[in-house]
Design a protein around this nucleic acid. Sequence first.
DNA 1: CATTGACTTGGAGTTCACTCCAAGCGTTAA
DNA 2: TTAACGCTTGGAGTGAACTCCAAGTCAATG
Lengths: 132, 132
Amino acid sequence: MRMAEVSLKFDLTQDTLRYYERIGLIPPVNRNNNGIREYTEDNLRWVEFIKCMRNAGLPIEALIEYVNLFQQGDHTTQARKELLIEQREQLRLRIEEMTNTLARLDSKIENYGQGINRKEKELSRLTETEIG
Amino acid sequence: MRMAEVSLKFDLTQDTLRYYERIGLIPPVNRNNNGIREYTEDNLRWVEFIKCMRNAGLPIEALIEYVNLFQQGDHTTQARKELLIEQREQLRLRIEEMTNTLARLDSKIENYGQGINRKEKELSRLTETEIG
DNA sequence: CATTGACTTGGAGTTCACTCCAAGCGTTAA
DNA sequence: TTAACGCTTGGAGTGAACTCCAAGTCAATG
């Protein structure tokens, strides 16, 4: 599969695909006789995987390291596993924090729902009491 | 309270505090006779609130709009509520996506745990089957 | 009275993650 | 055979969100 199609398939610009490959965020894609990238199924899986992980906020640096380890072969599986465990923990923490913030927003919206508009109530929307 | 202390309290640089105020991400902070910012309790609540919302990924633009509405007074409560509801929905979606990715990481790590290292297994770590 | 330290301002600089550009090449269509 | 198309490359440009800087003010200290 060529860039144009991959670009459409994953909604990433061709420039972004080239950029990801250039910085090692996805492994190199083989070229045909004319030097044109031909994405294999494996390449496509990498693109999808990286897009998913980036969307979840995993740092580019960590993902580049993961790709590097992958390319070094089977003796890096332990290191890769540790990397994933670390990133999972970071992600878990981010989700936890965001879930707390979501609850705080719920509470704030709830307060607006009560039709309050007095000064002290207005201010209370900013206090931490509403998340406690 | 002065900048230095606020900066320590919330782990935001003084430059960032000034920047947030400059772009309207927090309402203006009153100055004393010498032109120096004196943060009130309300100011501190705003700083904390904005930091929390930014950490959760709410867009700066939306938060500036929220602060603007707040400063326009009580007749904007409905608009503020709608803004918060919209942002809550966006946040909910982000959390959902990230939770799916977390499950995918769990599954990937699980696979590494089985001590597999054959080619086809290696590749399977990239497939979507592991999240299904 | 000079220096130090904490602040002020406007504006320039930095980093990240793309995004765009110019020049060039190989295949297809007229 | 000329043109268009889709790709190639290295490198420059962009926007967001800070981050830093220079020049200046004011109050307190030696």
